[in-house]
């Protein structure tokens, strides 16, 4: 197993340990906590009155444009990181290339801005 994989083995172990801790605490809790089932306890909480309709009521999602913008810039961020690490080696060439890349993506943001996408109306 290479060093690379071994260092990520710790990540796996830590993820498992988190699940283990939750399981252990819940197990410990189940020994201590009471269980007195009553039908009213399992009704969804809506500030004390009986819930109206289902819990999954339709709600307006205004975020989907933001989600599209997010994907655009998140991909940009993924490309920027390797560049940032190796900038010293790339020198002026790498700098100019990345500035062009950032400016093109920033134009996208400016376009969305001018189109009124960022307004909350």
């Amino acid at each position: 197993m290479s060093d690379f994989l071994r260092s990520y083995l710790s990540v796996l172990i830590f993820g498992a340990a988190a699940v283990g801790m939750v399981g252990m605490m819940l197990g410990m809790g189940s020994l201590l906590r009471p269980t007195r089932p009553q039908a009213q306890k399992y009704i969804a909480y809506e500030s004390g009155v009986d819930p109206v309709g289902t819990g999954w009521s339709q709600s307006q999602v205004r975020y989907y444009i933001f989600a599209l913008l997010f994907v655009m810039f998140d991909v940009e961020a993924v490309f920027i990181f390797p560049w940032a690490v190796r900038l010293e080696a790339f020198g002026v060439f790498g700098l100019v290339e990345m500035i062009i890349f950032i400016v093109i993506l920033a134009l996208g943001l400016v376009y969305a801005w001018r189109k009124g996408v960022l307004r909350w109306a």
Partner: peptide, 11 residues
């Protein structure tokens, strides 16, 4: 918190 009942809503 340890002594609180564990409640899963019915739905």
């Amino acid at each position: 918190f340890m002594q609180k009942e564990d409640i899963f809503p019915a739905r």
